[in-house]
């Protein structure tokens, strides 16, 4: 196991950020942490890259204890933090070279690596740009390039694509899959279930500092929700009417929308015939349905 946690706890003063967490990440896999804001994902990641110290429990990375060997662990991993922390005092290429020096990489090797990585993340034309001149998507790509400067065995990405346009997001997904193919282990947090479903072999759903469910995306869908969902936008008044007629089917209402769940598409035939005029969407269940079922629809305040 590349990362292994056993009843991991983290408390900040009187706030419990992570409680009784167990997880195991296999070499070469992509492991996703999902959960509402404040669920404890970032704290878990920060403990793995040794920026937060566990309060109790055991956490090992590459078989090394995070409390005893942070330097050896950090030498072998790459970190893409939630907020870009590029060095604004240095140009694009210098950012990579100076970062390489923190790993003890020599000047010549750093320069070669810098060009390889700028090519890999399609930033070659920006080598001399100052950081403030880069767009949000370029900054994110540069942070990912920087995390690869030491050829890490494990790449940790905290919300790698939040706030980016679809082109950049797809480029990043492609690159992450390339890296996985090369045998690099990936760990990421995300709020996009599509991203988790696309990239991750296993997903851990966290809520209120605890693990709620764990498994492959397909396992999670199979275990926690019906295979098909019908979404109806009926409006609040019609909702009551529909549920009075079809309340025997598994359903959930949420404001303007109604969700019906079924084992196969034809289970919805009667319902669809009765409300043929209504705006609707019949689709296979996704990780998002699992997520909302397990963590609820309430906003986290």
């Amino acid at each position: 196991m590349i990362v292994e946690a056993k009843s991991l706890h983290k408390r900040f003063h009187d706030v419990v950020a992570v409680e009784s967490l167990d997880l195991a990440v296999e070499r070469g896999s992509c492991y996703g942490l999902v959960g509402p804001n404040g669920a404890g994902k970032t704290t878990t990641m920060r403990m793995i890259y040794c920026l937060n110290r566990p309060t109790s429990g055991r956490l090992s990375v590459f078989g090394l204890d995070v409390l005893k060997e942070p330097r050896r662990i950090k030498a072998r991993l790459g970190v893409v933090p939630q907020d870009n922390n590029l060095d604004p005092d240095l140009s694009t290429c210098r950012n990579l070279e100076v970062y390489a020096r923190y790993f003890g990489i020599g000047r010549a090797d750093a320069a070669t690596r810098c060009h390889e990585l700028l090519d890999f993340m399609q930033l070659r034309d920006r080598a001399d740009s100052p950081i403030p001149a880069l767009s949000g998507g370029m900054k994110r790509r540069l942070v990912i390039a920087r995390a690869l400067v030491n050829n890490p065995e494990l790449l940790i990405l905290d919300e790698p694509t939040t706030g980016l346009d679809p082109q950049v997001r797809h480029l990043i997904w492609d690159r992450l899959l390339d890296l996985k193919e090369q045998g690099i282990t990936l760990m990421l947090t995300t709020h996009y279930m599509e991203e988790a479903q696309k990239l991750c072999d296993r997903v851990l759903i966290m809520d209120h500092a605890r693990a709620v469910a764990e498994g492959s995306p397909t396992e999670l869908i199979r275990e926690h929700v019906s295979p098909y969902v019908l979404e109806l936008r009926a409006g609040r008044t019609l909702n009551a009417h529909i549920t009075s007629r079809f309340g025997h089917m598994e359903h959930r209402s949420s404001g303007q929308n109604l969700y019906f769940y079924g084992g196969s598409p034809d289970e919805f035939d009667d319902l669809l015939a009765a409300y043929s005029q209504m705006e609707r969407l019949l689709r296979p269940s996704s990780l998002e349905d699992v997520f909302l079922k397990l963590t609820g629809r309430d906003l986290r305040l």
Partner: peptide
Amino acid sequence: MQNTFEGIISTPVS
């Protein structure tokens, strides 16, 4: 403001 230190201590530098 720049979070430069956080970037640095994510490497072997303590």
